[in-house]
């Protein structure tokens, strides 16, 4: 059987690939995909622990993660479309509404 640590290392590698993508890319669509990768990495960890501990809670939480991911994608892509309509491009540097003026 596959050791739990190996599953966790797999999850960690996946997560950090997603993280680096999120931090370095400029395209909003790519950022969303990076976030999806990170969420999937979390799911891998949850399933791995659920398998290892013999507990269904991990899988239930994975269901919730998927739900949140779906909601995030739906709203996020809607916003992305709005961005595109107003600017004609979807680059991160155009969106700095978090700045305190």
């Amino acid at each position: 059987m596959v050791p739990l640590t190996h599953v966790l290392v797999f999850g960690a590698v996946l997560f950090l690939i997603g993280l680096v993508g999120f931090l370095s890319r400029r395209n909003f669509l790519t950022l969303f995909m990076s976030v999806e990768i990170m969420l999937n990495a979390v799911n891998v960890n949850l399933i791995g622990f659920s398998r290892s501990l013999g507990d269904t809670a991990g899988q239930v939480f994975a269901v919730f993660v998927i739900t949140v991911a779906a909601a995030e994608v739906a709203v996020g892509l809607a916003i992305l479309i709005l961005m595109y309509r107003s600017r004609g491009r979807v680059l991160v540097q155009d969106w700095r509404a978090l700045r305190d003026n």
């Binding site: 931090l23 991160v92 700095r96 978090l98």
Partner: peptide, 9 residues
């Protein structure tokens, strides 16, 4: 705090 999401991340 320049509004740069990626810097925050």
């Amino acid at each position: 705090q320049n509004g740069d999401l990626q810097l925050y991340g």
